[in-house]
Amino acid sequence: MNQILSVTGAFKKYGAVTALRGANLSVNAGEVHAICGDNGAGKSTLIKLIAGVETPDAGTIEVRGTPVSFGDPQDALAAGIATIHQDLGLAPAMAIYQNIYLGSELSVRLAGIRVLQKRAMMRGAREILAKMNSVMTDMTKPVEALSGGQRQAVAIARALRWNAEIIIMDEPTAALGVRETKEVVRLINELRNRGATVLLISHNMADVIAVADRATILKGGRAVTSLSLDGVSADALAKMIMDGADDIEEA
C-alpha cells in the first residue's frame, strides 16, 4: 500500500502545556484510518496540524511524499485535505445546495457581473449526494431541517466538491443516535469505495471497529502504536487505549 500522508516527530506546545511530543502518523491511500486515544492524548492537536489550523513547533508533514507547510486551512485544502469538524461547518438556515457550494459557487459572467447558476448548483449537489447513495430530493431545503446523518452527507459532499482526497472527520457520530450513526458509517464506507482516504477521530470504539481499517493510538502526545484492526474487538481496542504502549508487541 502506498502512503499518502505522514507526520514525523510532531511537537506542539500551548504555553506550558505540551500537547504533542514527537507524534508520528502514517496513513495509506484509500484506507479509513482511526486516530484513537484518551482525552488529552493529542488527537485534536495532531488533526489541527494536518488540517492547517495550527502549525507544528517541530516535525514534518508529507502529503504523497512531498513535505508541506500549511499556513491556514485553505492551504491544506489546496493539498487535497478537507476537514469535517464536529459542528460540520454548515450554515443551518441555508439550502442544501448553497451549503455544498458555499464559498465556491458556480457562476457565469454576464456583462462583467458574476451571476449565480442556481440550477446547475442544484443539479450538481444532487449528483454528488447521489454518488454517496444519499437521496435528498429538495435541494432548497435548509440544512437545519435535515437529520444528523443527512447533514453529515452534506458536509461530505462539500468536501468531495473541493476534490479532497483526504477527508478528516472529527467525531462524526458523537451527537448521533443509533440509526444516524449507522448512516454515517455507511457514508464513510462509501467514501472508501470511491477511493478517498479518511482520517477518523472517534471516542466510539464500536464505530471505529465497524469502519476503520487501521488505527493509530496516541498517548501523552506520542503515537504508541499503529495497527491493523482486522480481528480486533472494540474491547481490546479500548484496553489498548487505556493501557497505552504496554500491549504493542502482542498487538
Partner: peptide, 11 residues
C-alpha cells in the same frame, strides 16, 4: 447566518 462556517469555507 454562520460566520464561522462561512470563514472556514473561504469567504
Amino acid at each position: 447566518e454562520a460566520e464561522g462556517a462561512a470563514h472556514r469555507a473561504g469567504i
